[in-house]
């Protein structure tokens, strides 16, 4: 069965004790164990090596492993904390923790800023925003002329770039987000609140271990 040679639990690379992960994230131990069920599903969808490869991430997001998407790439890169091209379980839990409804808003704001700072310069530049708008348009049915895109950028920067240097720094980003809370909508996943009921199989295992069934 599978690739395990013995009945002893062989842990994949990057697996960390759920109690440690729980102590360092927004999740409880049960929630971390439930996330492991989800992680196993995603990380075995293409290559069964206990790690999430970009193809597997795309497959889980879009149900299509070949779909290129600038934003999915950025999310993958940010989840890949060790920057080694794959997401291990501890990276998965630590990164998803930011998306928990109880995670601090500050963490969500910083994560979104890093996501949109495509070139990682510490600023969201106008050119980056344009690149992202064009990428969004190309994945949707919306068609906007270059003139309209430029006017959207003008309007956005008049509002966001309060220091008038043509780019948005973290402080400016925070003020913009506080004025437009809807920009943080993607940064909270209500699913994470009831993850133990979505992926309950670990509870079943725990009950068996307790001998209480």
């Amino acid at each position: 069965m599978g690739c395990f040679h013995s009945k002893k639990n062989k842990v994949p690379p990057g697996y960390e004790d759920p109690s440690i992960l729980a102590s360092e994230t927004t999740f409880s131990v049960s929630e971390v164990e439930a996330l492991y069920e989800l992680f196993k599903k995603i990380s075995s969808s293409v290559v069964n090596d206990g790690l999430i490869h970009k193809e597997e991430f795309q497959l889980a997001l879009f149900k299509n492993r070949k779909r290129e998407n600038l934003f999915a790439d950025r999310v993958f890169d940010l989840f890949d904390l060790k920057q080694n091209g794959v997401i291990d379980f501890s990276e998965f839990v630590r990164s998803l923790s930011v998306f928990h409804p109880n995670a601090p808003l500050e963490d969500k704001i910083v994560f979104a800023f890093r996501l949109y700072d495509l070139r990682q310069t510490g600023y969201i530049e106008r050119e980056e925003v344009k690149q992202m708008v064009v990428a969004l348009l190309s994945e949707s049915d919306m068609k906007l002329s270059d003139e309209v895109i430029e006017s959207i950028l003008d309007k956005t920067f008049v509002e966001a770039d309060t220091k008038h240097d043509g780019r948005i720094d973290l402080d400016e980003w925070k003020s913009l987000v506080l004025r437009h809370p809807s920009l943080m909508k993607n940064m909270t996943l209500p699913y994470l609140k009831d993850i133990t009921t979505t992926f309950p199989s670990f509870i079943f295992h725990s009950e068996l271990d307790d001998g209480s069934a």
Partner: peptide, 26 residues
């Protein structure tokens, strides 16, 4: 055509690549 009243980030946030809830619909 109607004027677009969204700011750039509101538009960007519509991307399916940013909708991680689909990770849970496996």
């Amino acid at each position: 055509s109607k004027p677009v009243t969204m700011n750039a980030f509101e538009l960007i946030s519509l991307s399916s690549g940013l909708n991680l809830s689909s990770l849970f619909e496996t």
